[in-house]
Design a protein around this nucleic acid. Structure first.
Lengths: 150, 150
DNA sequence: TCTACATTCTCTAGTCACTAGAGGATCAAG
DNA sequence: CTTGATCCTCTAGTGACTAGAGAATGTAGA
């Protein structure tokens, strides 16, 4: 039986995040010591590793919930799991395409302009002038994503 | 002078979002009719288009604030604007690389398994088995990003 | 003029997946 | 017996909006 800190080290998931997952019902409430501390079994560690892996691959918690539900009932057909993974793959594809378009325009924009006054700045100019822009900007690429390591 | 609805149609930014931007100080509080309705001038529409364009390019509101501040003071040197765009370009490059790696692994995982029971599902199996995984999953790719059209 | 419907107003709360911090209890080592 | 690490619960904050309540105002047709 492991404390939450030990589980955190093994899975690479931060302690508050493990508690958060419990609150979200992704893992069941674990056993407790007499003083109320959480005690985890190996199965919990495996489940949390599954969650971590899926999160690292960008699956949302609702997707992970479905996936876990499915693995809790191995008798059910697994078409749903494929569907989730396929949908996610399509998402990723779309985002890559979007970011490529974004990069093209940013490269065009971000050529240094020798530190002149902002009045001649190409960045501001390019962003003010929507007509000069190549792609469809109907949809935003969402969060910039600085990367977090749990 | 345009109502908020007309400005929304012209810029493609939703009405509540325009009010939100006002609250955030990205645009100044507009004139009002006798009954308190917002009235926008063309300059406001241009400023909002700037914001929309920058958001579509993935700039955060804090970046946009700097950019707007810069364009409000055209006498200042514009190195800062270049810096913002350059930093953003680096982010975009990193994210593309990350998503490519992600796609490789997802493609490997998401091969359909002929609708068998979940017990033999490759998706679940692959997610449970962290050791079989290629890349470093130290960092999560953040939000999936379904794309929103304002 | 009346009625119906659209639009606007302000305000609060919800989204997602956590993260940070307060304030207190318990544990292991020296 | 003290020190410091770890644990507990709880609330609130993040970013960039979105949704909804409840009320006032505007506009078009009968």
């Amino acid at each position: 039986m492991l404390t939450i800190g030990a589980v955190s080290k093994r899975t690479g998931i931060k302690v508050p995040t493990i508690r958060f997952y419990e609150g979200e019902g992704l893992i069941k409430a674990p056993a407790r010591t007499g003083s109320g501390r959480r005690l985890y079994a190996d199965a919990d560690v495996r489940r949390l590793s599954f969650i971590r892996h899926a999160r690292a691959l960008g699956f949302e918690l609702s997707d992970i919930r479905s996936l876990l539900d499915l693995s809790d009932h191995p008798d059910r057909p697994c078409g749903q799991a494929d569907q989730i993974a396929q949908r996610h793959l399509n998402d990723v594809d779309a985002r890559i395409a979007q970011l490529r378009a974004l990069k093209r325009e940013l490269s065009r924009i971000a050529a240094p302009c020798a530190g002149g006054p902002a009045a001649q700045c190409r960045v501001i100019e390019a962003l003010a002038d929507h007509s000069a822009c190549a792609g469809d900007h109907a949809r935003a690429p969402e969060r910039t994503g600085k990367g977090n390591a749990n």
